[in-house]
Design a protein around this nucleic acid. Sequence first.
DNA 1: AAATCGGGGTG
DNA 2: CACCCAGATTT
Length: 350
Amino acid sequence: MKARLTTPGARSRLRTRLLAHYDREARDLPWRGETDPYRIWVSEVMLQQTRVETVTRYYGPWLRQFPDVESLADASEDRVLKAWEGLGYYRRARSLHRAAAVVRDRHGGVVPSDPAGLLDLPGVGAYTAGAVASIAFGVVTPAVDGNVKRVLSRLYDEPKPTPRWLEERAAELVEPRRPGDWNQALMELGATICVPRVPRCERCPVAELCAARAAGTEQDRPAAARKKPARVLRISVALLYADDRLLLHRRPSDGLLGGMWAFPEGDVDEVAGRVGARLVGDVTALDEVRHRFTHIDATYLPAASRVDSTPTPPDDHRWVALRDVEGLALPVAQQRILGQWTSSRESEGA
DNA sequence: AAATCGGGGTG
DNA sequence: CACCCAGATTT
């Protein structure tokens, strides 16, 4: 009963029906029909763990700033991170930046067309290599993302599909004449019909071929992974200012929010000591800012104080004129902290 | 195999 | 609130 798609005939019917549905119903997305490998690559990296609707807001502006591999490779990391600001998983931006330099220096500026060459690039894993190779170059290779995992888990009624199993099933299903469209059709099905909680089987073009549908187990496929509770963190941050300049800190490349700018962590006197400035006047405690990352429940405790001078700080710190702060790449939580300070100053001046 | 790494949309 | 998204990388 589980084995509905084990025969070539059944797989052929699946391809025909799903591609027909895709040709009829596919959403009109900014990168649909795109043929430039660089642009397809950019869209796939942005789409990693990120909704289509979110990526749509970043894709166009990114291409205006970095229209090709060379312009991206030549850009500063600050510009690249600024263009990525708010998208999250900032290592993706840093990896894409590095990869552009690799393509320029080792591939003559031409994006590799084979999955192996793509896999060598920073930030390109099995999914992205398969997606770019199939969509941009017509290579007959699968692309297994979260959607495809769910769709295959249901089609075969497999509760706990392993990466190996998924690659094998996906590989034997690829439509050899239209591999890119096929992979996108499978993902589109998962995104619009074969959705996580309550799938819309009544609208599914391949429901008759679905083993989970036949068994009534579609809502339990794939089996839910156990979740670990988020770490709870309380983080003191210091807003030190003199005249119209604010002290900011560039976070280390590795780890959380790597390479992004942020207010220095620690109490105001401690941070002032770190940069060799002296506090002047009262310390203002600002409202807490709670920010939940996927795995961290952070509460920022911001405090602001004027300082008497802006001595040359350590390399990873910078005194930034207020009007220049918006030019730096700040994580969402830091923007909210800045907003607290700004509003507290306004209410004081009023 | 499990942890790390953002942010936001959705029921 | 929980869940999870066109995942990659490290441990």
